[in-house]
């Protein structure tokens, strides 16, 4: 489960976030970068529970872009196509405001919803072909701990020595170390 040559991966499952916190703090002090540390939890953690950088998300931005895109598409569909094939309406307007408004409204909502979900999946590496990079997001033998409500710490790209030290420090408080 190593990313490149001699790089090592250490995994440890914990019952309590406090136990994991101590190990993470020690790891950071010993010079391991925060970007090497991956935490898997059974439910969202509070921001200040671990001394790790907050993840960033652009879901909202993409949602708004999706809304604009969906709205324009729906508007074009309702108004543009009516103009492309103007059918006889007996003097009534071919592009009527309220119906186009209704369709645009629904298109806006649909665009927003679709883009939101796509962006969530993309950011989480859940879309096909994404996410399996440098061992992150890969299945782990310890994943069942997360499913059963425990926390899983994974530290990537360690040297032989770093890995050994981390394993030793984890053994006291972790449920299982891999």
């Amino acid at each position: 489960m190593t990313a490149a040559g001699e790089r090592h991966l250490v995994e440890a499952a914990y019952e309590r976030v406090e136990d994991m916190r101590a190990v993470v703090e020690a790891a950071l002090e010993s010079g391991i970068a925060a970007s090497q540390i991956e935490v898997r939890s059974p439910a969202p953690l509070e921001e200040d529970e671990l001394p790790l950088p907050k993840p960033k998300s652009r879901v909202l931005l993409f949602a708004l872009a999706g809304a604009v895109l969906g709205g324009l598409t729906a508007f074009g569909l309702a108004a543009g196509t009516a103009l492309a094939y103007p059918l006889p309406t007996g003097g009534m307007s071919i592009v009527a405001g309220p119906p186009v408004g209704v369709v645009t409204y629904e298109g806006t909502a649909l665009g927003l919803i679709l883009m939101t979900v796509l962006r969530v999946l993309w950011e989480g590496g859940l879309l096909p072909g994404r996410g399996i990079r440098s061992g992150r997001g890969r299945a782990s033998d310890l994943d069942h701990h997360v499913a059963n409500g425990r926390l899983l710490l994974r530290v990537h790209g360690l040297s032989e020595e770093q890995a050994g030290r981390l394993r030793d420090s984890s053994r006291t408080s972790a449920v299982e170390v891999g």
């Binding site: 059918l87 006889p88 309406t89 007996g90 003097g91 009534m92």
Partner: peptide, 14 residues
């Protein structure tokens, strides 16, 4: 009857 038809099956001819 005309505006409610979803498929333009009924319409006003010239």
């Amino acid at each position: 009857c005309e505006p409610v038809c979803p498929v333009y099956a009924t319409y006003r001819n010239p």
